[in-house]
């Protein structure tokens, strides 16, 4: 079997005295987009934070292509993994370009101005997210979808192998959700750069349509993992959400769609 992207062994995580994970082990395969699904409060965000090295587990290890994330220096980690939190934080006065340039932080040398490589990475990221025209606008002047793209552009400028996204579609309407997922598809399909995306999603239809692998979590336990057609079945939907449902392929893309019966 191919080496997994993330190898999680015996993970134990406590948050505020509450145990979220206990002896949790899982492997995320090395494929384009991995979607993490599950009910509210099942530990999706915590898992993502552990993958990004932002939460230090009490016990156990997370390995990225064999390298223990807990042992990486913060700069080395920042050069391999980009992370976007669920809610882009408070609005700042920054311009789009200013924000995207922040993604270069782990590559910048202290006391030196931005290098040509930095500037190239920023303009590539702006182009990939179709923000070149808006580069001088303030973040506060953007629409929700544009702002979300600006944050993704920042993660792109970081030029990491892995991008972790926590519910990037929550505040977007349907066309913007589709456009965002399409953008993620473009990123992992780019030739020459083997980018990987791990994304927490709520919408099962979107998740099944755009992800290569789905990982289902409930109450700190791994319920299912695999391609959408295998991971989403009436049985797993019951285990994940306690919901009686039928799962049928959609007529256009033949991806599984969940039809709740209750």
């Amino acid at each position: 079997m191919k080496q997994p992207l993330f190898d999680i062994q015996d993970l134990t995580v406590k948050l505020g005295g509450k145990r979220i994970y206990s002896q949790f082990s899982a492997q995320l395969p090395d494929v384009g987009i991995t979607g993490i699904i599950g009910p509210n409060g099942c530990g999706k965000s915590t898992l993502l934070r552990c993958l990004g090295g932002l939460t230090t587990p009490e016990n156990g290890s997370v390995r990225l292509r064999g390298a223990d994330i807990g042992h990486l220096s913060s700069i080395a980690r920042a050069r391999q993994i980009a992370f976007l939190p669920q809610e882009p934080p408070m609005l700042t006065d920054m311009t789009v370009e200013g924000l995207v340039a922040k993604g270069r932080t782990p590559w910048r040398k202290a006391f030196l101005p931005a290098s040509q490589a930095d500037r190239d990475a920023v303009s590539q990221a702006l182009e990939a997210t179709q923000l070149t025209e808006l580069r001088h606008r303030r973040l506060t002047a953007l629409s929700g979808g544009q702002r979300q793209r600006a944050w993704i552009a920042m993660a792109l400028a970081q030029q990491t192998e892995v991008i972790l996204l926590d519910e990037p579609t929550s505040y977007l309407d349907l066309p913007h959700q589709i456009r965002l997922m399409q953008l993620l598809r473009d990123l992992v399909a780019q030739k020459g750069q083997a980018r990987r995306v791990v994304v927490v999603l709520h919408d099962l239809t979107i998740a099944a349509r755009f992800c290569d692998t789905l990982v289902g979590l409930s109450d700190g336990k791994l319920i299912c993992a695999g391609p959408p057609s295998e991971a989403l079945t009436p049985k797993t939907v019951m285990q994940l959400y306690g919901l009686r449902a039928q799962v049928r392929p959609d007529p256009v893309f033949a991806r599984p769609v969940v039809y709740p019966e209750e």
Binding site: S74, R77, I81, F83, L84, G103, T105, P106
Partner: peptide
């Protein structure tokens, strides 16, 4: 003056600053 960069990163959020390599 040299803390401005770090401080600006922090204003993007603690997680964001951490994931960009600044504690």
């Amino acid at each position: 003056y040299f803390t401005c960069e770090r401080l600006e990163l922090l204003s993007l959020g603690a997680d964001q600053s951490d994931s960009l390599g600044r504690n």
